[in-house]
Design a binder for these strands. Sequence first.
DNA 1: AGTGACTTGTAAACCGTTTTATAAATCATG
DNA 2: CATGATTTATAAAACGGTTTACAAGTCACT
Lengths: 354, 354
Amino acid sequence: MKPTIKDIAARAGVSKTTVSFAINNPTRISKETCDRILAIVDEMGYFPNPVARTLTTKRLGSLGLLLPQPLPEVLNNPHLCDIISGIGEECEKRGLSLTMLPPVQGRIIEAARRAFVDAIVTIGVGPDHEVVDFLNSHGIPFVTIDGEETSSTVNVGIPDEKAAYDLMKHMLSLGHRKMAILCVKPDTKSIAENDHRSIVLEKRLSGFSRALNEVGLNLVAPDISLLETEGSLVGGKNAGEKLFVLEPGTRPTAIVAMADIIALGTYAAAREASLSIPVDISIAGFDDIEQSRYYEPALTTMHQSGRQKGQKAAGMAIELLNGGHPAHCSFPCNLIVRASTGPVPSRSASYKSS
Amino acid sequence: MKPTIKDIAARAGVSKTTVSFAINNPTRISKETCDRILAIVDEMGYFPNPVARTLTTKRLGSLGLLLPQPLPEVLNNPHLCDIISGIGEECEKRGLSLTMLPPVQGRIIEAARRAFVDAIVTIGVGPDHEVVDFLNSHGIPFVTIDGEETSSTVNVGIPDEKAAYDLMKHMLSLGHRKMAILCVKPDTKSIAENDHRSIVLEKRLSGFSRALNEVGLNLVAPDISLLETEGSLVGGKNAGEKLFVLEPGTRPTAIVAMADIIALGTYAAAREASLSIPVDISIAGFDDIEQSRYYEPALTTMHQSGRQKGQKAAGMAIELLNGGHPAHCSFPCNLIVRASTGPVPSRSASYKSS
DNA sequence: AGTGACTTGTAAACCGTTTTATAAATCATG
DNA sequence: CATGATTTATAAAACGGTTTACAAGTCACT
C-alpha cells in the first residue's frame, strides 16, 4: 500500500539508514546515492510516516487548538474564526497542520489528554484552569489567548480592562445612563471547569465599572442590566427582543455587547420593534469583525485583531517548542466610532433636565 | 517525565503485555491483577502514548479535512464554516479530533500527502482531481463534498443544476432580463490543479442556462454578465461597485451570487450607490447562511444545509473506515424567497412594452 | 492418572522511523 | 607503503506501544 522506508531501501538496494539520511541529512552520504534514492522516493511517492518519525524525533508537525466550546459554536463566532485564521496562517507558513480540539465530554482537559500535537494554543483558559497544570506537568508547550499573564502561562491578549473602560466612556459621554450589557453565556459544561469567558469578562466588567463609577453609577445600579446571551446572532436577537418590549422610560437607551456578533443580532430585534439605531437606541460591540462595517448602520465597536492574536500565539507556541522563551504579548486596541451610537434620546435624558 | 508502559510494568511487577491488556483488554487477565495495575496507572497518571499506539493499531483517532483554500479564506465563508461545523459535530460524537488540511504550497495533494489521519473529507474536489487518485491508490478512505457522484468517489451534495434552474426561474418570473451572475473566483493556485469550485459552478451554470434558454436567452447573451469575485463580503462589494456605476439602462436589474456572503457584500455597494433593494436592484444568493435573515432586506436565497452535508460526509467517511459502503448522498434544497428580490423596475422592463 | 479445555501471564516480534556505533573503503601524507 | 583521517554505508538499538504465539498452571471429566 503506502510505501515504507523499507520498500525504498529495497528498491534502491541500500539500507534503511541510507534512505533516512538521503531525506534528512543529505550531506551524510554521497551525492550520487542521495540523488538516486531521492529519485526513487519521488517515483514511488514515498513520504515518511509522521507517526513513526515522531516516536524518535518527538516532533509531529501539528499544532493543537484547544477550543473552549464545541466546534459549531466556535465557528459561529467570527472573532474566534479570525483567531483561528491567524493560527492557521502561521501553521501554513511553518508547514504544520492544525488540529481542532473541542472539549471532550464537555471537558477541555480530556481534549488535551488525547491531543496528538507538538504544541498547543488555548483560547480563554485562565491560569487556574486544570488544563494548565496538566500541560505544564507533561511538558507540553502551550500559549494562552485571552487568558492571564502569569508565570505559569504565556499569554496573548489585549488590555481588556482599558478597552471596556474606553467603550463605556464613549457611551456615557453620549449621555446614556440606562444601559444593557450583553455577556456571552458560558455553556454549563464549561462553567464546571472555569469557563473561558470569565477571564475576559471579568476584566471588561471591571473596566465598565471604573467608567460607571466616575459618573456615580455601578454595575449593580438599577439602570444597568447585565444579560447573558448566546454568543451568536440569535443570542443577540433574543436579548434585544427582551429589552425592546420595555416601556420607553425604563428601556435602556444603549446596548453594549461583548461581541459584535451579538450586537448585530440585536439589530434584527430593533427593526422588529421599529426602533431606529442610533436615534432610539445606541448599540456597540467588541471585536470589530468584518461584518460590522457592512450592516446598516455600521457598528461602533472596540477594534481588536483576532488574526493578529492567532498568528502571534501560534508563533510563540512554536518558539516555545524550539526552546525559546517568548514574553507575554498584549496588542493595542482602539475604539471605532461608527453610526450605531448617538446621543441619548432627549425624552429619556432625565439627567439633562436636572 | 511522562511515565511509559515500561514504568507501570516495572512498578506492578508484571510484563508490558499485561499492562497493555489491563488497559485494552481487561477480560484477558485476572480481575485482581487488572485492578492492581489500573490503580498504579491512575496513581502515576499514565496515559498510553497515542503516537506509539497508532503505529500498531493504525488508528489515529483523527479525521482530516482537505480544504480547497487557505484557512483564512475558508473561515471567511460561512457556508464552509457550516460544513466544518457539521463535520466537527460528527467527530465529537465519535470521539475523533479534526485536522484541518489547507493546501500546501498551493497544492491540495501535498496536504493529503502529509496528512496523518484515519479518513478524509474533501470539499469541492472532482473525480478528475489528482488527489482522488492519490487517496484511492493509497487506500485512504475519503468522502467528497460538492464533488461528483462517480464510481471512484463517494459524494455528498445537493442537486446544484436544479437549484440554479429554480433560482433563475424565480428571477425571470419577476421580469428580470438584464442580470449579473457573481461567481467565486478560484485562486490561481487552485486553478492549476482543477479548482474545486468548478464542479459546482459548472452544474449551476448549466442550470442557469436551461432556465435562460426557456425565455430565449443564454449565458453569453449581452445582457447577462458573468463576473468573478472573491468569495467574501469584500468580493461582493467590489463586484457591486463595478456594476452600479453603469447607466440605469444598461445596468443589470438583478444580481445572482453563487454564495450568500457575496450577495450580502453587494448590499454595501448598493447603499453607497443609493440604490434601493429590491426596488432598483434585486439580489439573490446561494446557501441560506444565518446572516442572510439578519440583513435588511432579508436575502432571497437557495437554501442548503452545510451542517447537514458536513455531518453526513463525516459519518460516511467513518463508515468507509469501518469497512462499510455508503452510497452517494444528495440533500434536497429549496428556494427561500425573502425581501431582496422584486419585480423588475418598470422603466427597465422593455420586454413589457412589446 | 491422563486428557483436553480454560485461565493467566509472558517473551518476542512488530509497527516505521531516527540515531548511534561501527565497519569498510578511500584518500592524503610523511 | 604503512598510517591516520575522512567518506560512505550499514547493522542494531531505540522510541512506546500492541499483538501473536506459546508456556505454565487450573480445572473438570473420564
